[in-house]
């Protein structure tokens, strides 16, 4: 099974190099002393120093983090409900529309999502006076709407793998559906909840297009600042910022992967133990 031809190996090597070399170069050149981004002028951390004195970038980073945390939390809650509905509720009237509205944002071009939700906010403001202007609230709502789909997919597939008989057993023993959900289902799918939250957090933190449409004058997010400065050319300060963002993401993902593997192993061990005990009886 683990036989791989030289062709496959070289394809994989090329593919992974393609994925990682640009990021590595970006990181290396963030320590470049020269202002010319492509000429090496010696090692230096001065761009990091300048980065932390740039109030515009710092302010935008704070805005982005707050929006990402709020929208990730809300979209995890809503996405979990959606995943539960799709995985456990069987058929109901309007299910096709429901699952359609969940998968469509996954592939919908961002410019369309952004424009349409902005026009909704404008229309709502005319109609009922809410939301008043645009800002962090409108960005958060827009982000929840498009990240929810990702959480739903993760939760739905996790619930699909999970054995329903555990839930049924709890119900047979007299637990009410809500209690079963909070005591049995939720702890089992907790790792999926974590990855759903992290994914929507990242997607929100990363989004330029939808945020540009729904942002107001006072709510500039980090990608918007990065985009406007990148348009003017490559600057070492952005390289430094990129290095920090990439390392933070890599760190979180590796940690999350380790935690999840450990939880998975523990669960397997518990099942194996229960099986062994049963056999002894």
């Amino acid at each position: 099974m683990s036989k791989r031809s030289p062709f496959l190996i070289s394809c994989m090597a090329f593919g992974f190099a393609f994925l990682y070399v640009p990021l590595l170069l970006l990181m290396i050149y963030s320590f470049n002393d020269s202002k010319l981004v492509t000429v090496w002028g010696g090692f230096s951390t001065r761009w990091y120093g300048e980065l932390f004195q740039d109030d515009q970038i710092l302010g935008a980073a704070r805005t982005s983090l707050v929006i990402a945390a709020m929208s990730a939390t809300l979209s995890t809650i809503l996405g979990t409900i959606c995943g539960l509905v799709l995985a456990r509720f069987g058929r109901f009237r309007g299910r096709t529309l429901f699952s359609g509205m969940i998968t469509a944002p996954l592939v919908m071009p961002e410019v369309i999502t952004g424009l349409s939700i902005l026009l909704l906010f404008v229309a709502l403001e005319q109609l009922i006076g809410w939301p008043e202007g645009r800002g962090m609230t409108t960005i958060t709502i827009a982000h929840v709407t498009f990240t929810m789909a990702y959480v739903t997919i993760i939760i739905q597939s996790r619930l699909g793998q999970m054995d329903e008989s555990i839930e049924e057993a709890a119900m047979d023993l007299g637990a009410r559906p809500l209690k079963v959900f909070f005591l049995i289902t939720l702890p089992i799918i907790a790792p999926a909840l974590l990855s759903g939250w992290l994914l929507s957090f990242t997607l929100s933190l990363d989004d330029l297009v939808i945020a540009s449409f729904t942002a107001g004058p006072s709510s500039t997010t980090l990608p918007m600042v990065v985009f406007s400065s990148v348009r003017l050319g490559v600057t070492p300060k952005i390289n430094a910022l990129a290095t920090l963002l990439v390392s933070a993401a890599a760190f979180c993902i590796v940690i999350a992967a380790i935690i999840m593997r450990r939880a998975e192993r523990e669960r397997e061990r518990a099942i194996a133990k229960a099986m062994a005990e049963q056999e002894q009886m």
Binding site: M12, F16, L19, Y20, P22, L23, L25, L26, Y29, V37, T38, L198, L199, T202, L205, D206, L208, P223, V226, F227, V230, V234, I238, N239, A242, L245, V246, A249, A250, C252, I253, V254, A257, R261
Partner: peptide
Amino acid sequence: NVLLLLVVLPFWTSFLIRVYAWIGI
């Protein structure tokens, strides 16, 4: 598992920055 993680990892880093990386190249 390690290779899969390596495939997914860039997806978790900023899209904008990954595009930006190619400008310098």
